[in-house]
Lab assay of single mutants.
Amino acid sequence: MAAAAAAGAGPEMVRGQVFDVGPRYTNLSYIGEGAYGMVCSAYDNVNKVRVAIKKISPFEHQTYCQRTLREIKILLRFRHENIIGINDIIRAPTIEQMKDVYIVQDLMETDLYKLLKTQHLSNDHICYFLYQILRGLKYIHSANVLHRDLKPSNLLLNTTCDLKICDFGLARVADPDHDHTGFLTEYVATRWYRAPEIMLNSKGYTKSIDIWSVGCILAEMLSNRPIFPGKHYLDQLNHILGILGSPSQEDLNCIINLKARNYLLSLPHKNKVPWNRLFPNADSKALDLLDKMLTFNPHKRIEVEQALAHPYLEQYYDPSDEPIAEAPFKFDMELDDLPKEKLKELIFEETARFQPGYRS
């Protein structure tokens, strides 16, 4: 834990890192770190609560700039109880001085990944967590956004079992017609939660990839272990087919990539493993919904509104309290091709509203 900075004593240090967030945020305490930044909790002297502050230093890398800009653009436009918001952003007053960006968010005690390492969940908890994931996802999908990296560590939890989806750095506007060349190379989302079509096709992607990830998360809540822990690309596919069985001819016809289709045709026939054999203690309604989410063919996979209306979630289902976005989200430009200098300018502009004396 960093010592509390005395008023006016300059930035606090946390594990050798400068955290320049005073005077409003003090009493910093280390939480963890990701690929390009550290997260601390801090005391907000204005709202009198502890908050989470993520320090991001992305400006050396085009990919990190892209992810940072995506996350900020999306989260500043989203407003939903099951999606983490941005409360404040701290950065230098000029673009030349801006080396880091500090993002202030609600402090959540833990995440689903940490929880599943230590606790076996009751059916009631599984049901409530799944409902909140789908409630947040309904809003995301209504904005025409794909999260693309749903996994237990991106689901934040607090002691009252509130759940918030975080990390929109890989999110995209849904565009089933656009052929994202190089899709697989830039697709760094965790393999275990990846839909089979991501490994088999490169053309376009749809909201059904997020539903697949939610199915993987439900299976993990039922058993405290990942359902498809593939060691590499082909191993991942083999794990999936080992449980779902061989795809039907109709399902194979959806695979545009001939090499991928021929690979699947070359494999020995596998039978589907019954879900109640894998999860003998699970609620039968939970397994019915799991089956509809972990469907090989993305066109037959359940959609988020149908999933919310499934009998497993009937005690929570309330369409009048499951809000959607006001308007579909649009990125003005494809960020993939922009140089990091341009992305830095866009991050600077996007964060201006939090600067003292800002006038829109």
Rank of each mutant, 00 (worst) to 15 (best):
L121A: 01
D235E: 14
E81Q: 05
A352T: 13
F354P: 05
L290V: 10
D124A: 14
G8F: 01
T185H: 06
S360L: 13
K300L: 11
V304P: 08
R301M: 01
D177Q: 09
A143H: 03
D288V: 13
H120Y: 13
K54S: 08
Q17F: 01
V101K: 10
G34C: 09
L289W: 02
L69V: 07
L338P: 00
K54W: 02
F228T: 00
H125Y: 06
I74S: 05
K73N: 14
D291F: 06
I53L: 11
L134W: 07
V39G: 00
M108A: 07
D106R: 06
P323T: 13
C127E: 07
E334F: 05
T159A: 10
P298C: 02
F296V: 11
T26F: 12
H61G: 01
K344W: 00
H125E: 07
E60H: 14
D88R: 03
H269L: 15
P247M: 04
I83D: 00
R70W: 04
R359K: 14
P196M: 05
P229T: 14
L184T: 02
D318R: 01
D235V: 14
R67E: 13
A2V: 10
G32P: 07
E186K: 12
A2L: 02
Q236Y: 04
R353Y: 10
P229N: 04
L75T: 01
H299G: 11
D235P: 07
F183L: 14
S57P: 10
E326Y: 04
V14N: 07
I74P: 06
K203T: 11
V18N: 08
G204I: 06
Q355W: 00
N123L: 08
F183A: 01
T160V: 04
I53S: 12
C166G: 11
P226M: 08
H141G: 02
L170S: 04
G182W: 14
E220G: 00
N154C: 05
P268K: 06
I165R: 01
I255L: 08
I347S: 14
L28F: 03
S208C: 09
M13K: 15
C65E: 13
I86F: 15
C166V: 03
E250P: 03
E250K: 09
D149E: 13
L313H: 09
Y187C: 09
S202C: 14
K272T: 06
P11M: 10
G34Y: 01
Y102G: 04
T110I: 12
E109P: 00
D321H: 07
P319G: 12
A92T: 13
N257E: 09
I255V: 00
S202N: 12
C40A: 09
K138M: 07
E60K: 15
R277V: 08
T181W: 10
C166P: 05
R67S: 14
L258P: 10
F129I: 15
Y36P: 07
I95S: 01
L241Q: 00
T160L: 05
T159N: 13
L69C: 05
H299L: 15
P298V: 06
Q132K: 14
A92E: 02
I302D: 09
K342P: 02
F329M: 07
S208Y: 14
P229G: 05
K99A: 05
I126A: 02
D283S: 05
V173H: 05
I302P: 06
T351K: 01
P268G: 02
P328Y: 01
H80C: 01
L163I: 04
G37W: 14
A171P: 08
A189R: 12
A7W: 02
E334P: 00
D111G: 06
L107G: 01
D251S: 09
D288Q: 01
Y139I: 07
K272S: 10
E349C: 01
K114I: 15
T351I: 11
Q355F: 02
P58D: 01
D332N: 13
F354L: 13
H178F: 11
A52M: 12
D44I: 04
L241Y: 10
N281F: 11
R261Y: 03
G204V: 15
R172L: 14
A174L: 05
C216F: 13
M221Y: 03
L218M: 15
P229I: 01
L75E: 01
L278A: 11
D251G: 10
F19K: 05
L75H: 08
Q132M: 04
A5R: 08
K203L: 08
S320C: 07
N257V: 06
L258A: 08
S208M: 05
N144I: 15
R191M: 09
Y25K: 07
P176T: 15
R301A: 04
V21S: 06
M98F: 07
